[in-house]
């Protein structure tokens, strides 16, 4: 049975998207991305002088990786900055896919919902396929859909914290109220169990970076996340049992020996 992730008309076998930053070395980054099974990787643009070769080296790796690119607008604080950086990304990376970030607060890198909606509206008009990094607020998410976003990427927790799914009520609400929209938990995931939980909730995918890059063994952690996300997706498809407050024996109670003995009443 095919269970592919579909984003803007493209299909993917992997439901894990990974960032390329913070790795101890380019070699570990390459090996970790490969081990994660990710088919979509994020990257960015920064000022560089002509003598700096990072851009060229990264470009060479990207081409050989075969992954779809998802450039971000990390660090942009206004719609104007985000739109300009998006245009620069499209020219360099030859893709209209964009992880849209408009940061509203330096302390927790919280997305600015107003700037985000404004930037998304303009970028959709300019032909971009916008994947907005957003908060988990239902109404902000609806506005993003209204202006033409077809995928949403609500945060689990602030970027780089590893705190996991901080507001499960909001995340569940998004899933229930937007059943047909691809939803990707982006940022804040620290452990594979948290990624699995997002998938069990019915999220379509998870995007993360720090949890793999800053693990003691990033390559091994990339594998752990790949397995957790497959496992969580499988569990969602299987359907979790309903929780209940009181115990219910799983072993048959019929024909239990000793049943007639009066002293079997449990001690208080």
């Amino acid at each position: 049975m095919s269970d592919q992730l579909e984003l803007y008309g493209k299909r993917f076998d992997s439901r894990l998207l990974v960032g390329t930053a913070l790795y101890p070395s380019p070699a570990v980054m390459r090996e970790s991305v490969r081990e994660s099974g990710a088919e979509i990787i994020t990257l960015s643009l920064r000022r560089q002088g002509p003598e700096q070769q990072q851009g060229k080296m990264l470009w060479d790796y990207i081409r050989e990786s075969g992954c779809r690119l998802l450039p971000n607008t990390a660090g942009c604080k206004t719609p104007r900055e985000a739109v300009a950086l998006a245009e620069m990304s499209r020219e360099i990376f030859h893709t209209d896919w964009l992880k849209l970030e408009v940061v509203g607060d330096d302390y927790n890198l919280q997305p600015d919902p107003y700037g985000l909606v404004e930037a998304a509206r303009e970028l959709v008009k300019r032909g971009f396929r916008v994947l907005p990094y957003c908060t988990d607020d239902l109404l902000v998410c609806r506005r993003l859909l209204d202006v033409g976003c077809e995928v949403l990427m609500p945060w689990g927790a602030p970027i780089g914290t590893g705190l996991g799914l901080l507001n499960k009520y909001n995340l569940r609400t998004l899933r229930e109220r937007l059943p047909d929209i691809p939803l990707i938990v982006d940022a804040g995931i620290g452990a594979p169990s948290q990624a699995a939980e997002a998938m069990e909730m019915g999220y379509d995918a998870v995007l993360l970076n720090t949890a793999i890059a800053k693990a003691q063994d990033p390559v091994q952690m990339a594998r752990a996340f790949r397995l957790a996300i497959e496992s969580g997706r499988c569990a969602f498809a299987a359907g979790l049992m309903l929780q209940r407050q009181t115990a219910s024996p799983s072993t048959p109670t019929l024909d239990m020996p000793f049943w007639q003995q009066a002293d079997r009443v449990p001690q208080e």
Partner: peptide, 10 residues
Amino acid sequence: LDVVAPVVGG
């Protein structure tokens, strides 16, 4: 002028 080139990113 801003002249930008690819870098790693999350």
